[in-house]
Write a protein that binds this DNA or RNA. Structure first.
Length: 507
RNA sequence: GCCGCUAUCGUCUAGAGGCCUAGGACACAGCCCUCUCAAGGCUGGAACACGGGUUCGAAUCCCGUUAGCGGUACCA
């Protein structure tokens, strides 16, 4: 569970200059010191606290974390709470808890973006002073009207940069009159391209982008400015984030250029889809990490499953212990295509962990789930109970349910298959149970002895072993599925087992 | 509309020009094991979106088509 930073290999790190292919004239001093030491990797996970921790966000966090651990770099956590309307402290806590649950740790932060407001504003003013940005006096209403008109005329709207051509005197005049203004970045007419670590080269043309707003008329920053300003300040070298940000990237690169800063390496990871191929959302069921925790998924299994969703270690590996996951991780191994979230495979993965983990590791969550359903295991060997049922379980909830049935006779309810067996055996059902009772009452209550006793009975009576064992199983659990019957008897205990058999036999 | 991204079994993926008669995993079906189920083992069905190139040779490279997704805000 503890992350192993030791053994990670920093030689895998990539120099953080992903930008390339600019058609604009290049400065000969662009790469002044080729021999400069390679900066240490710094990545960040930057969620917005406007809801729970979504599985997509969790996976983005996981990839950042894996990359940091792999390269010996630093993981910083930044809460992007500039949307004061929707951001809440409770959401922040849920996100932090979700990451912690998954075993995703961070080395710096959490930083809160809203606290950097004054710096964002100062950065915008710096650009204003250098003529790389300009004041725009167009109002929201005017802009909306223009956009609507363009839409009606079936042509595309792009801000024409008219305020960028205002004379100094004109600007001063409007300022003197106290007109409100936003700040826009001058978008240069040049190619903006970068070598994306997962997609390869991606290219946009500056002329296709308009002079976008970086500072609202109330002086607060727009997302793209805040992100770039913070990423520069935090010396982020690798931006690993969702695919939905690729169209923001050229705008952000324009900002890096305006600030005269090198761009980080960008790695855009694909989306996670629901089973209908649409973006994963609430109507697909559980999308919050916390939901899976409540459904009895182990954090290790969740993390393993998430890692394999959109990333492949390259071979046929499925169950990956943490050290291997870190050692094998690479940005190049990330898939370009969106992936469908397959709950069935998640549960299979969870079953793998359930089977492999010692019962002791499962005790705390199982105890919690048992408490939720009101079952006490006071004075019982819970580890033995868990061991008895865990290989047949896919979730911790399954385990808790099965343990509950073994501990508390009042929870035995006959299921459809149990009913079918009773119907099939007819009189032999109570009859065989009475026979069994006869030998069990005098038997030594250990699994091997119980097995021997029932087998001897079957032989003596000329009955099939299954016709003796299955009724016991139904008597003790209500169903036809369980661990071997002798072990079941041992786990349920002598008095309780005999009582359940008597009841089922109608005695 | 415009800009960008993507395209291998139902799903997750391997595959970086010949090793591909396209491999593995989940799911599904059958068999084995067995007191049931699970696990495990074996077997089976199941995919390179389409069309053009390039090449002695293409799932792999190029172009186009189609489809899906993302963006196109004084949201993040």
């Amino acid at each position: 569970m503890k992350s192993s930073i030791e053994g990670s290999n920093p030689s895998d790190s990539v120099p953080p200059t992903g930008e390339l292919g600019t058609k604009a004239p290049r400065s000969p001093f662009r790469f002044p010191t080729p021999s400069r030491p390679m900066p240490a990797v710094r990545v960040r996970f930057a969620p917005s606290p406007t809801g729970y921790l979504h599985v997509g966000g969790a996976r983005t966090a996981l990839f950042n974390w894996l990359y940091a651990r792999k390269t010996g770099g630093t993981m910083v956590l930044r809460i992007e709470d500039t949307d004061q309307e929707r951001s809440t402290e409770a959401h922040t806590q849920v996100i932090l808890d979700g990451l912690t649950w998954l075993g995703i740790t961070w080395d710096e932060g959490p930083y809160f973006q809203a606290e950097a407001g004054p710096k964002h504003k100062a950065d915008a003013e710096q650009l204003l002073g250098e003529g790389k940005a300009y004041r725009c006096f167009c109002t929201k209403a005017e802009l909306d009207a223009a956009r609507e008109a363009a839409e009606r005329a079936k042509s595309s709207f792009r801000y024409d940069g008219r305020c960028g051509r205002l004379s100094a005197a004109e600007v001063q005049g409007r300022l003197d009159r106290g007109e409100p203004f936003s700040v826009r970045l001058r978008m240069p007419d040049e190619e903006i391209a970068w070598e994306d670590a997962v997609h390869g080269r991606i290219s946009f043309q500056g002329r296709d982008l308009d002079d976008f707003i970086i500072l609202r008329s109330d002086g607060t920053p727009i997302y793209n400015l805040a992100v770039v300003s913070d990423d520069i300040a935090m010396r982020i070298t690798h931006v690993i984030r969702g695919d939905d940000h690729v169209s923001n990237t050229p705008k952000q690169i324009a900002l890096y250029r305006a600030f005269g800063q090198p761009t980080p390496v960008f790695a855009h990871v694909p989306m996670i889809l629901g089973n209908d191929g649409k973006k994963l959302s609430k109507r697909h069921g559980a999308t919050a990490v916390g939901d899976y925790q409540n459904q009895g998924i182990l954090p290790l299994a969740m993390r393993n499953f998430l890692a394999l969703l959109g990333w492949s270690p390259g071979g046929d590996r499925e169950v990956l212990p943490e050290p291997e996951m870190i050692a094998l991780f690479s940005l190049e191994g990330i898939q370009k295509k969106a992936a469908v979230f397959d709950t069935t495979k998640l549960e299979w993965m969870n079953g793998q962990y359930l089977s492999a983990l010692p019962a002791a590791d499962l005790l705390p969550p199982v105890t919690r789930h048992l408490a939720e359903v009101g079952v006490s295991t006071e004075g019982r060997d819970l580890a033995a109970l868990v061991d008895a049922v865990k290989v047949r379980s896919r979730t911790l909830l399954d385990i808790a349910h099965q343990v509950a049935v073994r501990v508390d006779g009042s929870r035995v309810t006959r299921d459809a298959k149990g009913d079918a067996l009773v119907a099939k055996l007819g009189d032999a059902f109570p009859g065989n149970l009475r026979l069994v009772l006869g030998v069990l009452e005098g038997a030594e209550w250990t699994a091997p002895a119980l097995e021997a006793a029932v087998k001897a009975l079957a032989e003596a009576e000329g009955k099939k072993l299954g016709d003796l064992m299955q009724p016991i199983r139904v008597a003790l659990t209500g169903g036809t599925v369980s661990e071997p019957v002798n072990e079941l008897l041992a786990v349920v205990g002598r008095d309780e087992s005999l009582a359940r058999i008597r009841r089922a036999a109608g005695l």
